[in-house]
Amino acid sequence: MGFDKSFLCASIIAQLVLVTVCQQNPVFPGWYADPEAIIYGNTYWIYPTYSSTEQLHFDAFSSPDLVTWTRHWRIITNSEVTWARYSMWAPSVFSHLGKYYFLFSANAINSEDELGGIGVAISDFPQGPYRDLLGRPLINAIANGAQPIDQFVFKDVDDTFYMFYGLESLQFGYVEGPFMFRRNGTYYFMWSEGGWGGPDYRVAYAKSSSVFGPFVRERTILEQDPNIATGAGHHSVINPPGTDDWYIVYHRRPLSETDANHRVTCIDRMFFDDQGNILPVQMTNEGVTGPILP
Score class of each variant (00 low, 15 high):
N140M: 14
W89S: 10
E223R: 08
Y44M: 03
D245E: 13
C266S: 15
G41H: 03
L8A: 13
A143G: 06
W246A: 12
G166T: 12
G128A: 11
G119I: 04
G30T: 14
K155T: 01
A37V: 08
S105Y: 07
P129V: 09
Y86V: 08
D274C: 13
S209I: 03
P178M: 12
S6T: 13
G197F: 07
S63W: 03
N42Y: 13
P48W: 03
D245S: 15
F172R: 11
P254Q: 06
R217L: 06
S210P: 04
A121Y: 02
I13A: 05
V21K: 02
R182S: 02
T68A: 10
A108E: 14
E80W: 02
G135H: 09
Y40P: 02
N78E: 11
G177L: 12
H234I: 10
T20G: 09
I228V: 13
A108K: 04
W69H: 06
W191Q: 07
V216N: 07
Y250A: 14
I39M: 05
F61A: 00
S6N: 09
R217K: 14
N285M: 08
W83D: 07
I228R: 06
D244A: 14
E36I: 04
N140A: 15
S95Q: 07
A33K: 11
N140W: 15
V153M: 00
D274Y: 15
W45V: 12
D159S: 12
A146K: 10
E286T: 11
S63T: 01
Y32S: 06
A232F: 14
T77G: 15
P137V: 05
F152P: 15
G116K: 08
V120E: 10
G276F: 06
R263A: 02
R269L: 13
L167T: 10
D259C: 14
I228A: 06
Y130Q: 02
G98M: 09
A260G: 08
F94K: 00
A229C: 10
M270R: 04
P64I: 05
F272Y: 13
P64N: 05
F154C: 07
V21R: 02
N277M: 12
H96E: 09
Q24N: 15
Q15M: 01
F61P: 00
P26L: 13
G173V: 13
L115N: 01
A206H: 01
S92M: 02
L56N: 00
R263W: 07
F215K: 10
T258A: 12
D268T: 10
T243E: 10
G195E: 10
A90H: 06
R85G: 13
T220G: 02
H72D: 15
